[in-house]
């Protein structure tokens, strides 16, 4: 069995020592990081501390040095994110920090993804996501985006307060199969309906699967406004996007 001192990266060592309490998780993490190269430990460190620029450049460098995409995922990006998950579960960090770390992981994945695509995997498609016009709440949307990217989707994030025409342009420009809208305020929910109508006006309604979500949104409301699907939460979002993308693909094939 490896020892904590076998991990050369001081930050990673410190993270395990300070934040991990479950003996099985400590052992698993020590074994994983001790076997990882210093280069991979550095990538994991960048993810753990949420340094997206470092995560991106270190991943790029590792690929140039001939490290395989799978090794970078296993020993760098995923290994780092698993420590983030534990710290969050143990209340050492909170949702805003997790999202910063997820952004760092995404920065690394951006360099790995072209290699994965070339291997025939990663055919999930593009999803455009945004919070509707007038609404500035973004945590739910950001968690959905994190889940979608984690599942292999390419996500175009339009941010908050998104006008209907911006959703339409983004879907058109990115040839997105799926579009997701979120709203947290009852007062902004009608803007979901306005956005769907904008797609019909642009002649694009049948070109994209539309899913809606957010705390006050219900399945009944989704039907009323003519959305294709309602996502109850960020977990449901991935399955919903998968089925909408499949439906869109088969529709365009016929």
């Amino acid at each position: 069995m490896a020892e904590l001192s076998d991990i050369v990266n001081e930050t990673v060592r410190g993270e395990i020592e300070e934040f991990l309490e479950d003996p099985a998780e400590i052992e698993r993490s020590i074994n994983l990081f001790a076997a990882a190269s210093p280069e991979m430990q550095e990538i994991a460190e960048a993810v753990i501390i949420g340094e997206h620029e470092d995560a991106g450049s270190l991943t790029e460098q590792a690929l140039e040095n001939g490290v395989s995409a799978l090794e970078i995922m296993d020993d760098g990006l995923i290994a780092g994110m698993s420590i983030v998950g534990i710290k969050f579960r143990e209340n050492f960090i909170y949702v805003p920090e997790v999202l910063v770390c997820a952004r760092a992981m995404k920065a690394g994945m951006a360099h790995v993804e072209p290699i994965l695509s070339a291997s025939g995997a990663m055919k999930m498609g593009t999803v455009v996501m945004g919070t509707v016009k007038g609404d500035l709440h973004d945590i739910g949307k950001n968690l959905c985006i994190m889940m979608l990217r984690g599942a292999g989707f390419t996500v175009v994030d339009l941010g908050v307060d998104t006008a209907p025409e911006d959703f339409v342009s983004a879907v058109k420009e990115n040839e997105a199969l799926v579009m997701g809208m979120s709203a947290l305020l009852t007062t902004t929910m009608p803007n979901m309906g306005r956005t769907i109508e904008a797609f019909t006006d642009a002649g694009l309604r049948s070109e994209v699967g539309i899913m809606v979500g957010g705390a006050p949104v219900t399945e009944e409301f989704a039907k009323t406004i003519g959305a294709d699907a309602y996502g109850k939460d960020a977990m449901a979002c991935v399955d919903t996007a998968k089925s909408l993308a499949t439906a869109q693909r088969s529709e365009s094939a016929t």
């Binding site: 994110m81 889940m147 599942a151």
Partner: peptide, 20 residues
């Protein structure tokens, strides 16, 4: 092999979302 990695990422993120 690639899918296995995405499944692991989804597992980590699902735990995060559930706890959130």
């Amino acid at each position: 092999q690639i899918q296995k990695r995405f499944d692991r990422i989804t597992e980590i993120f699902s735990g995060i979302v559930e706890y959130a």
